[in-house]
Amino acid sequence: MSNRTFPFPFTKDQYAYSNNSSILDPPWTLTVTEDYEKEITLKRKLLQQNHSRCFRSLPISIESQWEVMRLVFTQLSEAYPSHFSFTQKGKEFQFQNHLLNEEETFIFRDCTSIELEPMDLAGRHVQEDLILMGDRSDGLFLEAGQLCFPSNWSLAFVLGMEFKSIHYPVPGITDNGFIEKVGRFISRIRPNTAWERKNWSITISEKLDTPLETYADWGRMRQEVTEENAGELVHLRVEVQRLFRMPINHDILFSIHTYLLSLEELIKNEQWLMLFYRNIKTLDDDIADYKGISQYKKEMLGFVEKTMAEKEKMNR
């Protein structure tokens, strides 16, 4: 994507975990970008080819799924009224997607009125991956998800797992009770309120769909990075993650909008280049390993340092 709309994640010189969440007003959980049609096409192709990898749900999630679907269609039509409309006539709801020239009709909470599960249907109209976290008396559980663009994780593996267990593989995440605190923060999000945070990683090539299940295909590309091709191959991957408390069922909708920007594009912004360099340079080894950066860190930094030296020469 172009760097005009890219949500650059670094604000400080060194990376550290933090609950860097900010509240959103209006509390919209979705964003439509210039890549809408391209990404929707890819998403639907993945769903068609690998449905059980990309959509999973537990029976307990069905009421919340309906709430998600109505919320997604309502928010799309409020945020982008020229692209989407959503109306109700009697019992029947009608959603129109003017960008794709499509229409969905349904009766709220009537499973016979649609052919897919509600969140599986709604997710096909948004670029975001949608995760439903059930707020139970003993924790937050992943109860349904439509996940096409994961950054090296598996929906099938985490379905039904509790928030803390899902995050267990992240190095240092349990230090100072960090993950408990984040869990507690989420459990206290108020109805109809949305929070946003950014997460980042690195992906080799412009590939949105990097599930754990196909690691053998995309993971080996990490060995192909050289100082010469890093600008083109290496992409900064940013997930804009939003958490929304659904008022009726009191569960949490977690939406993930993934953005990729090649280093070639990133280096055009000198401030970004500097921040990117400092964050990668000082990154702890265990986090670098977890994010899969260790294999090509040297080559990538070589490219960045060379670019910085060239820019400095030109600025003189």
Binding site: D135, R136, S137, P191, N192, P247, N249, H250
Partner: peptide, 12 residues
């Protein structure tokens, strides 16, 4: 004020 809920139904 918009509704708050500290007494929600426990779906489970």
């Amino acid at each position: 004020a918009s509704p708050e809920n500290y007494f929600q139904i426990r779906t489970e």
